[in-house]
């Protein structure tokens, strides 16, 4: 039996190191198998108490990474650690005790035949925390923490609005006082006025409880508002990673620059941006040679088409582009 590495309190709370995840998928009716490269050598760390943003388009690997960080799947290569100890070696329940998910769609993430009090109380029961009366008290506290009235405890999810359901999902995630929330598009199913309420709630919870978060979103204005650090995923690679303000104010990777330019805030009378971005889409079953972004990059050269760029430190952040300076 291999020795279990000791927990390291100085290590980042959750860390992915050179994580690769492939899926074998069937490409047609005749059972041809192909390899889908969801993640290819990704580094990401969530320090204690930090809010880390993860942005990228659909198919870039955001949700795969969130499942790996939750310990729901194991990487094909590389490793995910909790305080320096591989998550794969930690019993499932101990991981769940410290890392909890908040999913995108509160309509499908809550069991419709359970009352709210039972939904929120289940993690307490599973982890054997407290007895009946103390759990009931804790459920009331949690409802109060997420801004729901106590009478909601007896309601079924169907009686709640989308915003109220997402508050229930957040209360459930917080029930066992985890150290990290993995929030996968927590507001994209909600209207803007409700989105603002949930974002405010997450900001308040962070101040009050110090919980760390991975905040996954396709909405860059929201990520810019919510996070300290941000990682930009493109086709399974982190192409730029650093302090949020620096990455968004002066992007070094052409893809980050295009993402930033495509944010349509209601302030600007500038009209629509002319994105320096091609419309050729890469196939994750057959990622392009060289730099994975080159088919869409207007600055691509022969070097980009043949040689994959190494991740370098540029202007205080990690960038994966031959030409970033």
């Amino acid at each position: 039996m291999t020795a279990i590495p000791q927990t390291d309190r100085t290590a980042p709370l959750v860390e992915a190191t050179a994580v690769t995840r492939h899926y074998r998928v069937s490409t047609g009716a005749f059972g041809h198998k192909a390899t889908l490269h969801a993640l290819s050598g990704v580094d990401l760390s969530i320090p204690r108490g930090a809010v880390v943003g993860l942005v990228g388009e659909s198919g870039s690997g955001k949700s795969t990474l969130s499942r790996l960080l939750l310990g729901l799947e194991t990487p094909t290569a590389g490793r995910v650690t909790l305080e320096g100890r591989p998550i794969a070696e930690i019993p499932r329940k101990q991981v769940a005790r410290r890392i909890q998910p908040v999913f995108q769609d509160p309509y499908s993430s809550l069991n419709p035949s359970w009352r709210v009090a039972d939904l929120i109380g289940l993690p307490l029961a599973v982890h054997g925390i407290g007895d009946g009366p103390s759990r009931a008290r804790r459920v009331r506290e949690l409802l109060d923490l997420v801004g729901l009235p106590g009478r909601v405890a007896d309601a079924y999810p169907a009686a709640l609005s989308g915003g109220q359901r997402q508050r229930v999902a957040i209360a459930r995630a917080l029930a066992i006082e985890p150290e990290v929330l993995i929030c996968d598009e927590p507001t994209s199913a909600l209207d803007v006025s409700v989105q603002a309420q949930i974002l405010n709630l997450l900001l308040d919870l962070r101040r009050e409880t110090g919980v760390a978060m991975l905040f996954i979103s396709h909405d860059l204005a929201v990520v810019e508002h919510m996070t300290d650090r941000v990682a930009v995923l493109y086709l399974g690679r982190v192409v730029e990673q650093g302090a949020t303000a620096e990455v968004f104010n002066a992007p070094k990777h052409p893809y980050t620059a295009a993402l930033k330019a495509s944010v349509l805030t209601p302030d600007d009378a500038a009209g629509l941006p002319d994105l320096a971005l091609g419309t050729v889409f890469p196939n994750p079953l057959d990622p392009p040679a060289g730099c994975r972004f080159h088919p869409r990059c207007l600055r691509a050269t022969d070097r980009c088409r043949t040689e994959a760029p190494a991740t370098r430190d540029v202007a205080g952040r990690r960038v994966e582009c031959h030409w970033a300076e």
Binding site: V192, S193, A196, N200, L203, A221, E224, H225, T265, D267
Partner: peptide, 18 residues
């Protein structure tokens, strides 16, 4: 007021709600 807007809202500031 509910939409985060760089330059209008400071990062981490509470947003306006309805």
């Amino acid at each position: 007021d509910a939409v985060p807007r760089p330059g209008v809202h400071r990062p981490g500031e509470r947003l306006g709600t309805i």
